[in-house]
Amino acid sequence: MGVKITSWGHFIPETKLTNSELSKRFNVTTDWILERTGIEERKYFSDGATSDMIVKAALNCIQQTDLSPTDIDCIIVATMTPDQHCPSTATFVHQKLGTKNAWGFDIMAACSGYLYALQLATSLINSNSYKTVLVCGADKMSSCIDPSDRKTVLVLADGAGVSLLQQSSTDNNIIDTICKLDSSHSSDISMIASGSKAPSTIENISQGKHYLRFESKTIFSTAISLMQIVAEEILSKNKLTFEDIDFIVPHQANKRIIETLAKKFDLPIEKFLINVEQIGNTSAATIPIAISEALKDEKLKGNEKLLLVSVGAGYTYSASLMNLS
């Protein structure tokens, strides 16, 4: 038995936040923003919550198959921007999609969320307990950033990407996934308020503690280092080299991180799937959106071997090898 990725789907909002708008807000030039982020515009969702973006992506995904929502056994939602703390965002996806035969839950691994969810879904299917799992990565980052905070506003955005995994007697698309956690610098990226440690009091909210903050100057270098470590580990474990990989799909944190990672690997930038320029950093959604969009645009033909690699707050970091065929 193996795990087949039956289809992909994504949703990208239409509302744009351009460098021109941000240059006026922060009194910098558009060239200054582009030079530091590689991002030209970010997409914001104003017509609902995280679950609404997931449902749009999921319907797109399901419509590519002969399946219906009632065929789904489990929904895994990777997000750091849930619709609300309780119940889970998976509950709202379940309700809106009509997946009456499924159970579901949320996980929070920040920008590594999709790969963490992929590992869980693969394990559930390999346990022979479930046959069809909807894996969702989605974040509405515009809901948790301070509009006056240049560090976060310049890069973060909204979107959803999903994949439908099924048990298969003939195919096995997912070769391996490694998930890791380095908690030694857990405060580098944080959102302090709204949890049990610092509830949503008037005082905490007035101090902006409910916003996501980038608190360290070493986030850039740490992200590159951890992605390099886990990418090289999974290749070594599976006796592969970069020459065996058709495309690398990195977390779309910003273009400068991806370009630096390419230099670390001594690889041409053309070997990396990149779409952050026109979308922004959608956290847990970046990797599935990148793959789904590349398949739709036929940049990917559906027969490639991919290396997926991510890093997120915590620091969570992960890598996955998959065959699209």
Rank of each mutant, 00 (worst) to 15 (best):
Q84V: 11
W103F: 15
Q84T: 14
T122G: 09
Q95V: 04
T122D: 12
S88G: 03
G113L: 04
L124K: 08
Y130S: 02
K96W: 00
F105H: 04
L124C: 10
L120T: 07
Y130F: 13
N101A: 12
F105A: 03
S127E: 09
Q95M: 10
H94R: 13
Y130I: 10
L97N: 03
L118I: 09
Q119S: 13
T122Y: 12
D83Q: 12
Q119E: 08
F105Y: 05
A121F: 03
H94D: 07
P87Q: 07
L118D: 02
N128G: 05
Y116N: 10
C111A: 11
N126R: 15
H94F: 09
S88M: 00
L118W: 08
A110E: 03
H94L: 15
V133Y: 01
S112M: 06
S88F: 03
V93M: 07
N126A: 11
V133L: 03
S123E: 10
T89Q: 04
Y116P: 02
S123G: 14
L134M: 04
T132A: 06
Q84W: 14
P87M: 09
A110N: 06
N128K: 15
L118T: 06
A109P: 02
F105S: 00
W103G: 15
Q84C: 12
D106K: 01
S127W: 08
K96R: 08
K131W: 05
G113F: 07
W103Q: 14
L124Y: 08
N126S: 11
C111P: 00
P87C: 07
Y116C: 08
A109I: 13
S129G: 15
S112L: 05
G98Y: 04
L120D: 01
V133T: 02
A121Q: 00
A121W: 01
L97K: 03
H94N: 14
Y116R: 12
Q95S: 10
A121M: 05
H94W: 07
K131H: 14
W103R: 11
A117V: 06
Q95L: 07
N128F: 13
L120N: 05
Y130N: 03
H94Q: 14
V93K: 01
